[in-house]
Design a protein around this nucleic acid. Structure first.
Ligand SMILES: [Mn+2]
Ligand SMILES: [Mn+2]
Ligand SMILES: [Zn+2]
Ligand SMILES: [Zn+2]
Lengths: 142, 142
DNA sequence: GCGCAATTGCGAATTATTCGCAATTGCGGA
DNA sequence: TCCGCAATTGCGAATAATTCGCAATTGCGC
């Protein structure tokens, strides 16, 4: 957990606990798109007493603080990733679940203006392209 | 349920049952964005013996047939709407849950091309703008 | 170092969704 | 029109995802 993360948590009146440090480390080093149970299993290897409740509670703390972001990738549970600097979006394969990131091809400002037209102040833009990846299409054709 | 819906179900080898007709009618007449339990409660008024399992099973049938679409509006459960002719997207208020529809401001073709760049064949484009609606911002300022 | 509110672990509770199975029923063919 | 039977339904139990209650622990401001 870097100084910026600590600052964010302190500003939100949250404590820096070993569990929170560990869970954020796991998310950061994973490459992204983990679900709660994957985070739990990875973190538990380093801290066997860790409980799943704590993982869920920490996810909520980090989510509310804006450190991580919740993803809906078409399954019955959520996935999480670091809220990165540059906004990126996701290509999701309906068949195998593969997730590919790509950068926002249209103006962020365009979206904000669009929201404003309806009186909304936009906090997040989620663009998901759902389809079939090359491998799965090849598989299909067999 | 119109002739087109019937055709779709028949083509998929599915039967036309009163439950399926009713559930689709409820979704169609609701204005959209219902969750499974709301569909259940509304439909149960007309067919008191209806079971929640049947609602979930019908949702899956309609979803797989492409008649309805599953939405992830930031809650712990899904919402559903008719898969309309023209693609529209959603503005979602984080505070009160309000959902406003808007039309796709960028080229559908652009997204397909973008997917192709990664070997994906795009089946659906989901664009969600999450933020704070005018009322909730006014409330906030008090 | 102290004091105490915030946090944790653990098990139970809730919520969302699926499953197993016996009873019912849509629908293609006689 | 009637039959046969696989598809579908209702119901209750089972799973999966997430949250809660509470007593024990611990971070952190003083
Ligand atoms: Mn990502
Ligand atoms: Mn809609
Ligand atoms: Zn794939
Ligand atoms: Zn609102």
């Amino acid at each position: 957990m870097n100084e910026s993360d600590r600052k964010i948590l302190r500003r939100a009146g949250k404590r820096i606990t070993p569990q929170r440090v560990l869970i954020l480390k796991v998310i950061r080093e994973s490459g992204g798109h983990l679900d709660a149970d994957e985070i739990y299993r990875l973190a538990k290897q380093k801290a066997p007493r860790l409980s799943l409740s704590t993982v869920y509670r920490t996810i909520n703390v980090l989510k509310e603080a804006g450190v991580i972001e919740e993803l809906h990738l078409g399954e019955e549970h959520h996935h999480y990733e670091l809220r990165g600097e540059k906004g990126h979006h996701h290509l999701i394969c309906q068949d195998c679940g593969k997730v590919v990131e790509f950068e926002c091809p249209f103006s962020e400002q365009l979206m904000r203006d669009l929201g404003e037209k309806y009186g909304f102040e936009i906090a997040a833009i989620h663009l998901d392209l759902v389809g079939h990846c090359a491998e799965c299409r090849r598989e299909e054709r067999k």
